[in-house]
């Protein structure tokens, strides 16, 4: 997308901070507006999922055998997978569970897991990046190699393998089997493959910042290392961190859906888009609506997050765009 030219109004020349300028640029970016709206809609749906359940007097796990045709392979009765006033997106074949509710509750699962994993990855990545970049030398060598090793792992395959192992280990330590254990495990596993992306960017930025005058000045005044890292350098890094976060969220959403699709994700009967996709595979030819809902949901959410991330990057650093 092209960067908007900032109009300079001669009558109102006033000092603006870089963040104000970025916000101005973002507000003028139509892609940003559309994608932000889509993201907002999904967040709205997932936050207010119980409201929809209350409105339709239904739950995402309630079976509706009356909506299925037992003699026809238990497929939904009616057009478009059983779309009706009661079931806005139709019902799931073989169970009759309401697909709209499963969709909004699925958005809840996808978004909360992805956001939590991104948050953990960001905190870990920023700290490690700061430490590696600031101290340099041996510490940087070790941490950088660690990042490269983690990046070299085939993350989905590894996550698929390690999730059940980690879960069994925790259950062996007395935790309950179920989503209460599974979801934190997924978050940790996803985060453990997400942090190097942030750490590398932060490290690079820190290396260029640590020799700057303001850091030298603070150092000359006897500031502690902690102060230098977190009070002097970190505040200058929020722009690249924000961009990485915005681009990390869609990756996490797809990773979570993939993990569930492959069987190591959230456990039934909790709604999840990956799980919906998986169970819809058997019906794509006879009930395409069932596949379309989680498919398009994932597509639009991931696309919106990616475009929003791009726009944020353009706004924060107009020079980096084409």
């Amino acid at each position: 997308m092209s960067t908007q030219v900032i109009a300079v109004d001669a009558s109102r020349v006033e000092g603006r901070s870089p963040s104000q300028m970025a916000w101005e640029r973002l507000k003028k970016d139509r892609t940003a507006k559309i994608s932000a709206t889509v993201v907002f809609i999904f967040i709205f749906l997932s936050v207010f999922a119980p409201l929809f359940a209350w409105l339709t007097k239904d739950t995402p796990n309630a079976f509706h055998p009356e909506t299925l045709d037992s003699a026809m392979g238990a497929l939904p009765i009616g057009k478009l997978g059983g779309v009706s006033g009661d079931h806005w997106f139709g019902v799931e074949p073989q169970t009759g569970r309401d697909l709209f509710l499963r969709f909004v509750y699925g958005a809840r699962t996808s978004l909360s897991v992805a956001l939590a994993a991104t948050f953990v990855a960001t905190v870990v990545g920023v700290v490690i990046g700061l430490v590696a970049g600031f101290f340099g030398g041996k510490i940087d060598q070790v941490l950088s190699r660690l990042m490269e090793i983690v990046l070299a792992f085939p993350s989905i395959l590894f996550a698929l393998a390690i999730t059940p192992v980690l879960e069994d280990f925790l259950i062996g330590r007395g935790l309950q089997s179920g989503n209460g254990t599974r979801i934190p495990v997924i978050i940790v596993v996803l985060a453990s493959f997400g942090w190097p992306y942030i750490a590398r960017i932060v490290r690079g930025q820190v290396i260029s910042l640590r020799e700057r005058e303001f850091v030298d000045a603070a150092r000359a005044l006897g500031a502690s290392k902690f102060h230098l890292i977190f009070k002097q350098i970190l505040p200058n890094l929020w722009a690249p961190i924000l961009v990485t976060v915005a681009l990390n969220i869609p990756t996490m959403i797809t990773a979570e859906a993939a993990l569930t699709f492959l069987g190591a994700g959230v456990m039934a009967p909790l709604s999840d888009w990956g799980a919906m996709l998986l169970s819809s595979v058997a019906f794509y030819s006879v009930d395409p609506m069932f596949t379309a809902i989680p498919g398009f949901a994932l597509f639009f959410l991931v696309l919106a997050f990616n475009l929003l991330g791009d726009s944020v990057r353009d706004a924060l650093d107009p020079k980096s765009s084409r």
Partner: peptide, 15 residues
């Protein structure tokens, strides 16, 4: 246990 929902989940009366 609801016999209806289990049999429907299996694929209905043909299963």
């Amino acid at each position: 246990i609801d016999y209806n929902t289990v049999i429907l989940a299996a694929g209905g009366s043909n299963v």
